[in-house]
């Protein structure tokens, strides 16, 4: 048997037509060469690890606080601070929205007062923070934002957070 495995017969006779009809190692099918290729997975794991590290570093656990519409391009700033979830007033296509609900300019103070009232009803033991987030396109003129600034002042929202994109 060892002669067959290691000897001349294996390399010559068995692989040949004689080998297929041989009594020593009979084969009904034609001998097929085994295809066995190993992929080098180390490089793939390296690439994956780098991707995971990059994505983890840029991962934001605070989630998406603001939904920025297609028509709005926020101004850019380098010294922006982290944005928390606060009531949002936005100006989009000349219309005012309080928490994504369109509000006429004349009713803006009332809408903000309603927000304040709602906060005090839902959280009676907490102090009203008086913070509001303003979201507007970078090309807006201040006269369009002025009504929000005035209304928020009248409704007791003294701290304003202008939404910006971090440079």
């Amino acid at each position: 048997m060892s002669i067959i495995n290691h000897g001349v017969i294996k390399t010559s006779a068995i692989g040949s037509v004689i080998g297929e009809s041989s009594v020593i190692a009979p084969k009904t099918e034609r001998h097929k060469r085994e295809v066995h290729a190993e992929l080098l997975l180390t490089a793939l794991i390296d690439a994956f690890s780098i991707l995971v590290i990059f994505l983890l570093m840029s991962f934001s656990s605070s989630g998406e606080v603001l939904f920025v519409g297609k028509g709005i391009e926020l101004p850019k700033a380098t010294m922006g601070e982290q944005l928390d979830r606060q009531p949002v007033v936005k100006v989009e296509e000349g219309k005012l929205f309080v928490e994504d609900k369109e509000v006429p300019e004349a009713n803006l103070v009332q809408a903000l007062l309603d927000l304040r009232k709602k906060f005090q009803e839902t959280r009676p033991n907490e102090e009203f923070p008086g913070i509001i987030t303003i979201q507007g396109d970078r090309r807006l003129k201040y006269e369009q934002l002025n009504s929000i600034v005035l209304a928020s002042s009248q409704a007791g929202f003294s701290d304003i957070k202008f939404a910006v994109i971090s440079k």
Binding site: F59, S60, G63, E64, Q82, D159, I160, V164, S166
Partner: peptide, 17 residues
């Protein structure tokens, strides 16, 4: 991570009136 990534980094400029 790709599905949950937030690519636009929104911040705020805090002011008082």
């Amino acid at each position: 991570l790709l599905l949950t990534a937030v690519w636009i980094n929104v911040a705020s400029m805090n002011v008082k009136q």
